[in-house]
Design a protein around this nucleic acid. Structure first.
Lengths: 242, 242
DNA sequence: GCAACGAGTCGCTAT
DNA sequence: ATAGCGATTCGTTGC
């Protein structure tokens, strides 16, 4: 890996027409060579979690030219990703630091509390939603998307459960209703005990709900009794596990 | 700004329960002090456009302890964001570089070809969609979201145009239909020439469409004649401008 | 402050 | 390869 502190300007072309970064003090990370993945990141030194310009993994440093000495050193670097048609030119006007360090030991990241774990904990604890639910599957594929948790209730109805680790939006509620429209077409469910003439139920599970979501669901429930919502937090699921 | 090349491990707690980064060779960017926005980024030296761990703008370096000399230097850094309840601990086992450089000249980024420009170009060229359309507004607010472009057709119908710079999804089509259900409730439209008894029309405009989207719209169109799709690319809009 | 929404999103999983 | 979808998403705009 290579770290460059400098004053530079950039010009990107590729996925959008262009992105021009005006001259400023930046920090550049370049993961070139056999050591790295080919990505390059250009950060403003002052602000921004996201880079101002970047090139994705698989890019190549195709041009590197320098002139001048020490702090008056100026340079041009061109990074390209041919198959994606992307190109980034970096015009360096003042160089402060150009350091290399090998990547010997790679990091491994272990996360606790993400959405897939929320869904997994809930799928192991379906009584929290309703008595007698049996897990049929997770990430169940339909023509209109994947149902987070699919379960069977004691009456033989399919129950689609949509989980959100954070706030559920009205779009999530609509998506759940789409699943309810789609599930009756899935013939494989009868083999799992689902009675086809019974329409499926839907539950939107989240720790909080955006404006209007619960109201919309309650209206739907009054009209068809097929969709409902349930407030459940990650901590709640963790507590029940013990 | 400060750049640290080292071998380190991290522990984050906050928005998720925890994220533990195993010992590895990393590059750390720290924008501390009056110079920066308080953010911190920890990159694996080998791979990843996104940081493995990070802290958002507004964080504070609350602890910094060092022991040992030169390359045997070891350290602990703790970064906290109190109002958000986030905390990142960095355990440095081997220090290679610890460099500071001021942020004097800030960059400015100018992008060409983003979604808002796609929408702007189209709003100036509504004949591409249909003859005689008059622009009523952009980002028109409804109870269920913002209509990208709202126009008036020669018959006095409101026309809601949803634009996507890249691929349009089935969710975009559903969202457009929600606008069509909502717009008749907007009484301010009559003042702009919209005849209230005429139901609004909807057009989904994008350079490409995800699987099933055009089919769904065509079905809707057969049923109600109120929604349609149109394939338009950014380059097409640019060419017509000249 | 929250809410909606795009992003050159990225990154992961499964088809 | 593409599709679907979450993310400690981030960043912007409008209220």
């Amino acid at each position: 890996m290579r770290v460059i502190l400098c004053r530079a300007s950039c010009r990107y072309t590729g996925r959008i027409n262009s992105a021009e970064l005006s001259l400023g003090d930046v920090c550049i990370l370049l993961r070139d060579g056999a050591d790295g993945d080919g990505s390059m990141l250009v950060f403003d030194r002052k602000v921004g979690v996201n880079p101002r310009n970047w090139m994705p993994a698989g890019s190549e440093l195709t041009t590197e030219q320098w002139r001048g000495q020490a702090e008056e050193r100026q340079g041009l670097m061109v990074i390209e990703h041919h198959s994606r048609g992307e190109r980034l030119e970096v015009y360096i006007e003042k160089l402060t630091l150009d350091a290399r360090a090998p990547a010997e030991l790679q990091t491994v990241l272990a996360k606790l509390g993400s959405e897939s774990q929320f869904s997994e904990l809930l799928s192991n604890d379906l009584e929290l939603i309703s008595d007698g639910l049996i897990l049929l599957g997770r990430e169940w594929r339909t023509e209109v998307g994947m149902v987070d948790i699919l379960a069977l209730d004691p009456d033989g109805r399919a129950v689609a459960i949509e989980t959100k680790r954070r706030r559920a939006t009205i779009g999530d509620a609509y998506q759940l209703r789409r699943y309810l429209n789609e599930l009756p077409r899935d013939r494989s469910l009868t083999k799992l005990g689902v009675k086809r003439r019974l329409p499926p139920l839907g539950v939107l599970v989240a720790p909080s709900f955006a404006r209007g979501v619960t109201e919309w669901i309650d209206d739907e429930k009054r009209a068809s009794h097929r969709i409902s919502w349930r407030r459940v937090s990650f901590d709640q699921l963790m507590d029940r596990q013990t």
